[in-house]
Design a protein around this nucleic acid. Structure first.
Lengths: 332, 332
DNA sequence: TTGAAAGCGCTACCAG
DNA sequence: CTGGTAGCGCTTTCAA
């Protein structure tokens, strides 16, 4: 493992000169072309590679970024999460950064200076929020949630567009008795609000029922609840593909067919082309395109050494994916 | 950001003393209880946290380990891969290590000293093998594949146990006309060999046809091929759940029912309890338990500063998961 | 354009 | 048991 000193000696120059040339930084300022070439040759010959740790210690930059999610395992094994993560890794990789999941152990000390910044994805526990707030005092932290001192990423434009697409579609098919299964109890973030608003706008008389469940809660308690609902709604708005599948399977066991007897709509689908029957009708928000923005924003913050309260990113195009799981209601 | 010097000054001791106490290492050797307490208090008060970069530069250890896979995106978005990765992350996290996917760009320099070791999972390109061979000269590298200088992890016992379980099960149901879809062209690693061997042992007259496809090749060319096979086999041995699902969907469109008309067996299932119908019958190899071993072995190598050509790990218990996708052949 | 030298923050060796 | 100090490998003034 040759060090900078070895190269310097072999090239007959000082460590400073070598540092200026090999750093791969801005413009190799102030080194004559001749020396530069000589140094490069020697470095090449010796197989010299700068020690990133020393560089990091000296510059304060590591090119590592952290990713914090509440439950890494649930996140990664969930199809949406995996897709998301893949997008994070790729975006970071292409910008010359590595990305590492930081293990969400509120007790363990977070190794701050090992990362240049951190992405907090999704909602995490209060203990972790506090921890990240501490971290945010040292390095940039971006999040969609709210963390004191961190940069909040807000997606421009109306967040409920995808909800309205769903409502519009189901209403157009003729559904007037719908169960929405939500993943949050915050009214503004629920689809139900959009369903209600649209019904009012269109002067429709719609019966809405709402259940709340969690995306990582397989098996889902509310699936069982729905199986016992009488009368069944004519359509169910499920919060993701996994839930939709589980629900369809459960209903099938009950002798209820999808979409003949009841339609199932996926709030957040990635199922297009996965080949499973029935194909799910739903909305693809293309969140994975947003993750790229997350990474870019964070890196921007890191490289400009700035801090902002908020940055906004343009939403990805939201897409209505029409497959087989929805149909007009029976006798509708 | 207080440093060790600040703590030392505030506590009226030397940096050495502080280092001995806060390092969290072995036995805090050679510091009187009194000083120790005093130092701890001061450190606490000042909110001192050791700079991991400095520690790393000084000790040569980073507590980062790398994970290399041929195609991170395909890996992570594949259910099996995600599960695997989750297991890696968890195992590493619990041992106090972070794990980061290293971006498989053969051109870019691998930042060696940023990681204490590396896991190479699955088969990677020759260019990457060479790169990892170089890396292996500096830090431990473990792999199931063959990389010069790296430690090969071999799973004890017969690797074909899972294949034989499948063959046994399908033969017992009465299937004698089977298509195996393989993911490799290496005969010893194909299920077909085990199917043949078992047929011979049991004196059965079995018709075997074999197709080869790739796990990341969605949509799968061979699915289409099977859809046009005439006569259809009575059972199909699919190489994973995703393939099995895609196949079932395609057959359904053809009017072929599973398992009534044809049985589908999943070589590597994780589908137990995912709720999708039909439930897949197959073998769960519990590879995710093996990843834990990978991580442990690597960390062992790192911490003992050893190098070995090979280590062997005990296989996880292979499990036959019987659900709905297999039945006796029609009129069998 | 070049080099000497002072750090970056920590560990570990060696005296005392 | 304790403190001084020499590195770890690199970057970055500051002079020359």
């Amino acid at each position: 493992m040759p060090t900078i000193a070895d190269v310097a000696k072999a090239a007959g120059v000082s460590k400073a000169a070598v540092s200026r040339v090999v750093g791969g930084k801005r413009s190799t300022t102030g080194v004559s072309a001749a020396t530069q070439q000589r140094i490069l040759n020697v470095a090449q010959e010796l197989g010299y590679v700068p020690n990133p740790l020393a560089v990091a210690l000296s510059t304060g930059r590591t090119y590592n970024i952290g990713l914090l999610v509440a439950s890494p395992l649930a996140f990664l094994t969930h199809p949406n999460g995996a897709l998301q993560y893949g997008a994070f890794v790729q975006a970071a990789g292409e910008m010359g950064y590595r990305i590492a999941i930081v293990w969400p152990d509120a007790r363990r000390r977070l190794e701050n200076r090992m990362i240049d910044g951190c992405i907090v994805y999704g909602v995490v526990s209060p203990a972790l929020v506090e921890k990240m707030a501490t971290l945010a005092r040292q390095v940039p932290v971006v999040t969609t949630d709210r963390i004191p001192g961190a940069t909040q990423i807000v997606v421009e434009g109306q967040a409920d567009k995808g909800f309205r697409m769903a409502a519009e579609y189901l209403y157009k098919l003729g559904h007037r008795d719908i169960v929405t299964v939500e993943i949050t109890t915050i009214p503004e973030r629920q689809a139900r609000a959009s369903f209600e608003a649209l019904a009012k706008e269109q002067g429709l008389d719609v019966r809405l029922r709402t259940l709340v469940d969690h995306w990582e809660a397989r098996p889902y308690p509310s699936v069982e609840e729905i199986a016992h609902l009488r009368p069944l709604p004519t359509a169910i708005y499920a919060f993701d593909d996994g839930y939709a599948r589980a629900l369809i399977a459960r209903l099938t066991r009950e002798g209820v067919r999808v979409p003949e007897d009841v339609s199932v709509f996926s709030r957040e689908t990635h199922a297009k082309g996965d080949g499973i029957v029935p194909g799910l009708t739903g909305v693809d928000w293309h969140f994975e395109r947003l993750s790229v923005d997350f990474v870019h924003q964070l890196i921007e913050l890191i490289e400009r050494k700035e801090r902002t309260d908020k940055v906004s990113v343009k939403p990805a195009e939201i897409e209505l994916v029409i497959q087989d799981s929805c149909a007009p209601p029976r006798g509708g």
